[in-house]
Design a protein around this nucleic acid. Sequence first.
RNA 1: GGCCCCAUCAUCUAAUGGUUAGGAUUCAUGGUUUUCAUCCAUGCCAUAGGAGUUCAAAUCUCCUUGGGGUCACCA
Length: 464
Amino acid sequence: MIVTRFAPSPTGYLHIGGLRTALFSYLWAKKNNGKFVLRIEDTDASRNDEAAALAIVDAFAWMGFKHDGEITYQSNRMDIYKKYINQLLDEGKAYKCYMSREELDALRETQMANKERTRYDNSYRDFTGTPPEGVEPVIRIKAPESGAIIIDDGIKGQVVFQAEDILDDFVIARSDMSPTYNFVVAVDDHLMGINEVIRGDDHLSNTPKQMVVYEALGFTLPKFYHVPMIHNSEGKKLSKRDGATDVMAYKEMGYTPEALMNFLVRLGWSHGDQEIFSMQEMLTLFDPKDINKSASIYNTEKLDWLNAHYLKNMPNEELAQQLENYDIVLTSHDKKEILLDAVKERAKTLKEMATLIKEILATPESYDEKGLKKAFKGNADEVLKSFAPNLETVKELHLPSDYHTIMEKTITDMEVGFGKIGQPLRMALLGKMSGPGLDSVMAIIGNDETLNRIESILEVTIPS
RNA sequence: GGCCCCAUCAUCUAAUGGUUAGGAUUCAUGGUUUUCAUCCAUGCCAUAGGAGUUCAAAUCUCCUUGGGGUCACCA
C-alpha cells in the first residue's frame, strides 16, 4: 500500500506551492487506494503558530481533500524521538558535542576566511575526556566522511552527492534535547509507514542527511519524488511575500476549488495535450513519473480561463449556492434561472459574477456619461417613450422572448434599427453600455422596475 | 563561493533519435451577438550558445552561458 504525506511547518499559511505538493501526494495515494497523512512539523517551539495548522485544515476542507487518520503533531512525539536519540547514543552512532556557540562561530569564520566549506570539525566525535563546564551539549550524528550518496529520485533520476562535499556530523538534538528537522523527518516518515515521499525539490539537498539517519537507525528508505518549485514572476521561489498566494485568498477572490486544482495539477505535470481534468480524471491519470524536471512560473491567466470554464459549466443550483458566499441570495427570486444563465458566461470569478448580478438587480444610481451621449443621440428618448406602453402587452408572460418581441415591435413602429432602442434602453436599465442581453434583464427585473428605470433616465439631462 | 538541480513560443506544456516542432493560455484579426462577454475561425510567437556522436539530434555526450535551490542548535 502506498502511503504519502504532507508535512508542512506551521510558520505561515498554506500557499499555492504547498497546495500543489499536497495535491500530488493526495492524488498518488488515492489513485493507489493508499493513504495520505498530514503531519505538522512543529519541533521548534519558538516558531510555532497554532492558527497556521488550522488554516491548513481549512484549506484542505475547501479543496475537498481529506487526510487519513489523525493529524500528527511532532511536538507530541518528543518521547519517541528521545528514545531513538538515546539508542544512537548507546550504539555509538551519535555523540554529545560540547562545542559552544562561540567556538562554533569562530570555527566557521576561520573556515570562511580560508575559503573552505563551513562545517563542524568533528572535534567531539571520539571525545572521552572531561566535558567543559557550563556548556549544555548538543547531540550530533556520525555521518560518513567520504563516499558517494546516491538518491534514486522518481523525478530527477539518479542524483549523486559526495559525502565530503556536503556532510558533517550534524546536530540531531539541540542543547535543550529537542530534536531537529532532518532527524525527526526520517524517524516519523518511517514510523508512520510513509513509503513514497513527494515534496519540493528544495529538500533535495537535505535528503542525504536524512539518509544518514535512515542508515543509522536501520530503516528502509522511502521512494523520493522531488517536485520542481513554482516560481513567482521574478523567477524566484514562491514565498509568503508574494501577495495573494494564501490558498484561502483564492476562495475570497471567487475561484472554485475545481479550477484551482485543475490549474495546479497542470503546473509541472501533464498528460498529453489535455487541459481540463475532473477530479476523477486526475485520480486515474496522475502519475508522478510524468512530473516535469524544471521549475514553472506561476501566472494566473490560465487560472482565470479555467475558472471561467468551470463557472460556465456549473449547474445553476450549485452556482446559486456558491454565490451565497459573495452576498448574493437568490433562493426566493422567481427568475433565478434566467439571471444565472445571463451572467454565468461573462464572469471569470464568482466575485465578478456577484457584481454583475448586483448591477442587474439594483436600479442604476448613475449613468456612464460617454454612454449617455452616444445612446441618446437623435430621437432615442422618443423611441423609449414609444417602447414603454408596449410593456403592457407582456403582463402575462415574462420570458426574455416576450420582451424581445416588443422591442422588435417598437423598432418596426418607429422605423429604426435595433441599436436605436438597444442603446438607450441599455443605459436606462444598467447605466452603462455593456452587460447581459436586455430581454433577459427585463425578464429578470419585471415590468414595473423596467418602467421605473425608463422613467428615471428620461428625467436625466443628456450631456451635450 | 562549494554542492545539487534545471533549460522548447511571453506563460503552462507535447513531441519511440526521423513531425511543416503540436496543444493550451495571453495577444491580434475576422465571424456570430442590438452592446459586452461567450462561442467559432485565422494569425503572431520557441528548441539559450558552441562542439561532438549519428545517415539523421529539441531528444544522447561534453563545454559555455543563464536561472533556481541549498549550505543553522529553521523547517
